[in-house]
Design a protein around this nucleic acid. Structure first.
Length: 779
DNA sequence: TGCCCGGTCGTTTTT
DNA sequence: CGACCGGGCA
């Protein structure tokens, strides 16, 4: 946004001769280098706010300028939003050029629509999202008679997805377990995974993973096809390369063999998706994978003020597994990062609201200048309540995504079934919605018959007369359902939106919520209307070739983050992950607490890699801020309903900021900002370092000390400090049983112990002042 | 067949 | 604390 308002000197419709210099105008030397580099692999290591998008878009324009045909350039991004933004900016430089800019998933969908026959997909296949996926798994479990055993479906899905992302097929997975007994859970997975794939294929459907996986397989099995695509896309550009997983990597590789003009951009320090299979190695080993690769580093930051950048840089420099990078800026110092401390989550939310209001009334800020980031979605609630109380307009980039709402999924399922009558999941969803007297029993009989006779659910319903197990009424009702469905077609309705309207009308869909409270009914009605609007938009954009499949693809690959509108005139609330790639004049990062940032899961994993990813996550959050950066802590935070005393984030000991008492109306500033003299915060950091050098493990302690709330000097705890607990002590907990104390941190009321329990190998942190721990003795 | 309640579960991040 | 599943009852 900000610095990108660089004037486009070329008038619209310019001829190419004048653009070369213009395309390099206002670029730094490394930026120019990246734009100018022509053929061969190119890696752009782009720090936050270093003008990456600008470089890529200009590079594309420059390629066209050199005579490369626009249709032989493919740019791939991760999110729709990034793709759209890049498309817009390329269009500014090259109006009407129709460069193909797409996400990995959309690109693969289009390949599969054209060439998916050999992996068993019709061109109108549907894309199953997560809830469809879970539905499939439930069906599979049902068929396998496994519901007796409690199997967590979501976990199954996650496990299968993970296996797929390591490119292990169901056959390979099952075979691998024949030789080696795996986890008990994997034994279940081994049974479910193949059936799951079968169901998808029988439904002419793919899940998100399949979308990529099928294409990679297609290219592997059909070298001529791979070569065709490789050749067609003479230039390939991949954004956010640090987030690619094994499959995406394979895809990029297979498109860059004959024509290795692959340009990747990314920043290892912003890799925050390793948990879902992203492989930092991909970017770290680019030079090895693509011979004679050129490397360009963009290290000058045009986004943040110097003090913000400095704090972020301090933090990230604590990562050990890292390509060192020097972030620089010409910007003024600006205001120091501020740490606002509150007593609990509610006053934190109120305090943030007050800060924002104050900035808007006194400093001329606008609501839209502010973004609040949190680690977990559940933390948005308290903030939403506070903003409502304070009458501050806000938008949340999360919650139930629009296309995940029941009424929307129901109507989409109708569309799916019309287009693809073998979609068992859509059938199950729709056949009795609104209720038309076709219950579970009848459905089970029908699907059993369908499987037996090798037909899809709609075909089975059509032949309901032949299914002897069905009751007479069930047969009649199924026939009626088929009758209604037969009246629906795109050809008859004329457009997707009209078809949707017809469905709503003919099925009397609003009966579904007749029982719901009126307020709910109104929301649902509005959602349905919004869906029709979305369809109308699709109709308009695809007037030349409208299809149900096309519309469904749009909805399947849309995400809630796409809906955030930077210009909405509202404060934006989102997770730190969702904030990647964005920037805001003022940013608040909420809950800098142990267990939140870094997240408990990463801490408990005991894996330094995971902790480093948490650090990168905070780094990403901090570097979104242009002018003001606030971070907050609450001394007490309700967790699963019960309030618990918090421990400050260890990361606070690794960066610089001013501490502000957020609960005081004006905020009592402990140390003021712009001086570079070490403040108390830094003295404490020095102590921490000395202590670390002495072989202690006091990160928690120092974090706590930092925020201990008193101005008096606080020392680090030693063996003799006042506490009855000591590392190595045996304790008993009424619920978790026997355990051993592994860490002690904090002082007085804020003193905490971490206990590793013997059975179940779980680890819990307790506040000494109120915990039910019983001392047993020393190990 | 459908509704309601009760219990269980988990609880990070997403195309 | 909340969502969601499954079971049991009307």
């Amino acid at each position: 946004m900000s610095f990108e308002s660089f004037p486009t000197t070329a008038p619209p419709g310019h001829s190419s001769a004048t653009t070369v210099t213009n395309l390099l105008d206002g670029l730094t030397e490394p930026q120019q280098e990246a734009v100018e580099y022509f053929e061969g692999p190119l890696q752009i290591l782009a720090g936050p706010g270093s003008g990456k998008t600008r470089v890529i878009t200009r590079r594309i324009a420059r390629l066209v300028d050199r005579g490369v045909h626009p249709s032989s350039i493919l740019a791939i991004t991760f999110t729709n939003k990034a793709a759209r933004e890049m498309q817009e900016r390329v269009n500014q430089l090259l109006p009407e050029s129709r460069i193909w800019i797409s996400t990995f998933h959309r690109f693969c969908a289009s390949v599969l629509r054209r060439r998916g026959r050999s992996v068993g997909l019709e061109s109108n296949f549907v894309i199953f999202n997560k809830s469809d996926q879970l539905q499939v798994l439930r069906h599979v479990l049902n068929d396998l008679d496994m519901d007796a055993v409690r199997v967590p479906v979501a976990k199954l899905g996650a496990r299968i997805s993970h296996i797929k992302n390591t490119m292990v097929s169901s056959e390979e997975f099952t075979r691998s377990l024949e030789y080696e007994v795996g986890e008990p859970f994997d034994m279940i997975v081994a049974q479910v995974y193949p059936k799951y794939q079968e169901t998808l294929l029988a439904s002419n459907a793919v899940d998100f993973d399949d979308l990529l996986l099928h294409v990679v397989k297609l290219f592997q099995e059909n070298p001529a096809l791979r070569a065709e695509y490789d050749d067609r896309f003479r230039f390939l550009l991949v954004d956010e390369y640090q987030d690619t997983n094994v499959i995406q990597y394979q895809l990029v590789r297979s498109l860059g063999i004959d024509r290795p003009n692959v340009c990747v951009t990314g920043d290892p320090d912003q890799s925050i998706y390793a948990w879902r299979g992203a492989n930092i190695e991909n970017i770290l080993h680019f030079e090895r994978d693509f011979e004679h690769a050129k490397l360009v580093r963009l290290e000058q930051n045009f986004r943040s003020t110097a003090l913000i950048l400095q704090s972020a840089d301090q933090l990230i420099s604590h990562n050990r597994m890292r390509k060192a990078k020097s972030l620089t800026t010409d910007a003024e110092d600006g205001e120091a990062v501020q740490l606002l401390r509150f007593k609990d989550g509610r006053s934190e939310a109120d305090g943030i609201a007050e800060v924002i209001r104050k900035q808007c009334t006194e400093a001329g800020s606008k609501w839209r200048d502010f973004a609040i980031f949190y680690r977990v979605n559940s933390m948005s609630r308290e903030l939403e309540l506070a903003f409502t109380r304070h009458h501050i307009p806000f938008q949340v980039a999360a919650g139930l995504a629009f296309y995940d709402r029941t009424e929307i999924r129901d109507l989409l399922a109708y569309l799916r079934l019309i287009e693809n009558p073998v979609d068992t999941i859509a059938f199950a969803r729709v056949v009795n919605r609104p209720a038309r007297g076709i219950g579970k029993t009848s459905q089970n009989k029908l699907t059993a018959w369908a499987t037996e006779n090798g037909v899809g659910p709609m075909e089975a319903a059509r032949r309901a007369d032949r299914i002897t197990s069905l009751t007479k009424t069930a047969k009649i009702k199924l026939k009626a359902f088929v009758g209604i469905m037969d009246t629906f077609s795109l050809a008859n309705a004329g457009s997707v939106s009209d078809l949707l309207k017809k469905i709503v009308e003919k099925t009397a869909y609003s009966r579904t919520w007749s029982a719901a409270s009126s307020e709910q009914a109104i929301t649902k009605q509005a959602n349905v209307e919004e869906l029709v609007n979305a369809a109308a938009q699709y109709d308009e954009a695809n007037a030349d070739d409208p299809s149900i499949t096309g519309f469904l693809e749009t909805t399947a690959l849309a995400s809630d983050v796409d809906a955030v509108d930077a210009d909405a005139g509202k404060v934006t609330l989102m997770t730190i992950h969702a904030a990647k790639g964005l920037e805001f004049p003022s940013v608040v990062i909420v809950g800098l607490e142990h267990g939140l940032i870094p997240h408990e899961r990463s801490i408990k994993s005991n894996d330094p890699k995971q902790l480093e990813e948490e650090r990168r996550l905070l780094f990403v959050g901090m570097t979104r801020a242009m002018r003001n950066l606030y971070m907050t802590t609450a001394q007490v935070r309700a967790e699963r309903g019960t309030p618990r005393i918090t421990i400050p984030s260890t990361f606070l000991a690794e960066t610089t900021f001013d501490i502000i008492d957020g609960s005081k109306p004006d905020g009592t500033r402990k140390k003021s900002g712009t001086s570079s003299k070490p403040n108390k915060n830094q003295e404490l950091r020095n102590k921490l370092k000395a202590s670390l050098a002495a072989g202690n493990k006091p990160l928690l302690t120092t974090g706590a000390a930092l925020l201990s709330g008193s101005d008096e000097e606080v020392g680090l705890p030693d063996a003799g400090s006042a506490s009855t607990f000591a590392v190595g002590m045996r304790v008993r907990h009424p619920k978790y049983g026997m355990g051993t104390v592994t860490h002690i941190a904090g002082f007085a009321k804020r003193r905490t112990v971490e206990v590793e329990f013997t059975n179940g190998s779980r680890t819990e942190t307790f506040s000494v002042s109120h915990c039910p721990l019983q001392l047993i003795g020393v190990r």
